[in-house]
Design a protein around this nucleic acid. Sequence first.
DNA 1: AGATATTCCTGGAGGC
DNA 2: TGCCTCCAGGAATATC
Length: 271
Amino acid sequence: MASVPELPEVETTVRGLEKVLLGRRIAHIEPRRGDLRRAFPPDLGQRLTGSTVTALGRRGKFGLLHTDRGDTLVFHLGMSGKWRVDPDELHAHDHLLLETEEGKRLVLNDPRRFGSVDLVKTDKLQSSPGVGALGPEPTDLDADVLHSIFRGRSAPIKALLLDQRIVAGLGNIYACEALHRAHINPRRAAGRLSRQTVKRLVAAIREVIDEAIEAGGSTLRDYARPDGELGYFSKRFAVYDREGKTCGCGGVVRRIVQSGRSTFYCPRCQR
DNA sequence: AGATATTCCTGGAGGC
DNA sequence: TGCCTCCAGGAATATC
């Protein structure tokens, strides 16, 4: 199943990159075309060549490479972005090459080009357009705070879960899975959820995300497949992409469209 | 102000 | 087999 990178996939990717980049000096960085979603920073090569990667991290679906020169490379995998380690050869849509002093080569491939690569001053990261606008990580979600954010909102809960300013890192797949886990109908108005229900939702989000990260870690072993691809793994979903199949409760999974995208849920156990 | 629609992009799937 | 249309989706932007 070709799934879109969400928080767990980015986390797995970053852990894979950490193994080959942490403490290493960037000898060479080369855009192979000028842009993904946006143009690459024109001074990318100048600012990163010769710098040492001091730490890697993740915020929401953004991957972060911090350097000893006070710059942070911020990447987003969009819908189809992936990093490969030491590729045998270059493919179509290999948009960015990075080589360490040791000769490790990394390639960012993104056929649909919904991804992005930006360079931000590390001390300005929290006020940068992408990362700065993010809500809390699922780990830091507070049910009472979330409940008060939902108050008065008439939009369906599913739509608000996709809003990165409310929770960072959820995409269509894990939003569907979390709502299923919490037994919440995706069409319910967010403002009408009880405090107790929001508590259940927060727990479900954490579980779904943690299990996916766990699956990524155990499936990939060393966080790279034999072909060097980082971050993608197969995970079995309860409702996502399972229209017409039976839910664990005996109900039948339905697909509906909400604000232009698919929602999968079980009408029997999600009220 | 908040909710929803549109835009970007390409590969793959399905129809005829 | 080949051509066509449609669909997937994150996030920025536009519009209601």
